[in-house]
Computed example of a mutant assay.
Amino acid sequence: MEALRLVLRYAHLIGFAVLLGGALAQYFSGRIRINAPMLWGSVIQVVTGLALAAPLRGGGDKEPDPAKLAVKGVVAVLIFVMVFFSRKRPEVNKGHFLGIVVLTLTNAAVATFWH
Rank of each mutant, 00 (worst) to 15 (best):
A54E: 10
L98Y: 03
K72Y: 10
A108H: 00
L4V: 15
L13I: 14
G58V: 07
R31Q: 08
K88L: 10
H12V: 08
V46F: 05
R87Y: 14
I14E: 10
A17S: 15
S86C: 07
P55A: 13
F85G: 00
A108E: 11
A53T: 10
L4H: 08
T112E: 03
L50V: 05
G99P: 03
L78S: 13
N93D: 15
A108D: 08
F80R: 00
A25W: 06
A11M: 15
A111Q: 05
H12K: 05
A11G: 03
G73F: 06
A109H: 03
G49C: 03
L98H: 04
K72V: 07
K94P: 10
F28I: 03
A51I: 11
V102K: 10
D61F: 09
G95D: 12
V77R: 02
V102G: 04
A11C: 12
F85W: 14
H96W: 14
L39H: 11
P37S: 07
S42K: 01
S42N: 05
A11V: 15
A25Q: 10
N35G: 11
S42V: 03
H12R: 08
L56F: 12
L13F: 15
L78V: 13
F16E: 05
L78T: 14
A108N: 06
Q45P: 01
A53E: 06
G99H: 06
V7E: 07
Q26T: 02
V102Y: 07
G22S: 12
T48N: 01
R31K: 12
M1Q: 12
R89P: 03
A76Q: 07
N107A: 03
I79D: 00
L69T: 05
R57D: 07
K62G: 02
E63R: 11
A70G: 03
P55F: 06
D65N: 15
F97K: 06
V110R: 06
L52N: 04
V74Q: 10
H115N: 13
R89S: 12
A111F: 08
G99N: 07
G60C: 10
H115Q: 12
Y10A: 09
F80K: 01
L105T: 02
A3Q: 12
N93K: 04
L105N: 05
I32Y: 04
R57H: 13
A111V: 11
D65H: 13
T48Q: 01
Q26E: 14
R87Q: 14
K62Y: 11
L98I: 08
V74L: 14
V74K: 06
Y27L: 15
V83P: 01
G49H: 04
L50N: 05
F97T: 07
I100C: 01
E91Y: 09
G30D: 08
V46H: 05
D65S: 15
A17F: 13
V71E: 10
L13D: 13
P37G: 08
M1R: 09
E2C: 10
F97W: 09
K72P: 07
L98W: 06
L56S: 08
K88G: 02
T106P: 00
L78Y: 01
I34Y: 02
F113T: 00
P55N: 14
F97R: 07
R87H: 12
L69W: 00
V102A: 15
G59Y: 09
T104M: 06
